[in-house]
């Protein structure tokens, strides 16, 4: 049951990450971010904000007792958490009333790059996780 919930949570996070990246794509070429794309981006961001910590808690127990996860799976997991943390934090800083416009521009730029990295980490985590599972089986 725990495995199912864990896998479902990761699936939601991965799907949300894909939506987040997809909706932001036009801005990578100087496009405008607004309207329904921004709306979808904001909805998907909510899923990551909730899903990623839940997945982190559920998955962290793997490191409490043997057998320990594979090295690849470990690396992608912690990378996913770190990039996710930075992605969320960079947008959270923009939401604070103390961030100036130049800082906001820098943070939004960073948010885009680290968000893309998070997607890569999530995909890599999926691959390494599946590989580790199949090896174990």
């Amino acid at each position: 049951m725990l495995t199912l919930i864990r896998n479902l949570t990761f699936g939601v996070v991965l799907l949300a990450a894909i939506v987040l990246f997809g909706t932001s794509l036009p801005t990578w070429w100087g496009g405008h971010f607004g309207g329904y794309r921004l709306l979808a981006h904001m909805f998907a961001s909510g899923l990551v904000v909730v899903g990623l910590p839940v997945y982190a808690i559920l998955r962290w127990t793997d490191w409490l007792s043997p057998p320990m996860p594979s090295r690849g799976s470990s690396w992608t997991f912690w990378t996913l958490l770190l990039t996710g943390f930075l992605t969320i934090a960079s947008m959270y800083a923009c939401m604070l009333p103390s961030t100036s416009t130049p800082w906001m521009i820098t943070l939004i730029d960073f948010h885009g790059w680290i968000g893309a990295t998070m997607l890569v980490a999530a995909i890599a985590h999926l691959v390494t996780f599946r590989r580790a599972n199949s090896t174990a089986n």
């Binding site: 909730v50 910590p53 958490l81 943390f85 969320i88 959270y92």
Partner: peptide, 15 residues
């Protein structure tokens, strides 16, 4: 904002 702050705290603690 509170939800995001909570999320960041959990992620930070986990890391």
């Amino acid at each position: 904002k509170l939800l995001v702050a909570g999320s960041l705290v959990v992620l930070g603690v986990m890391m």
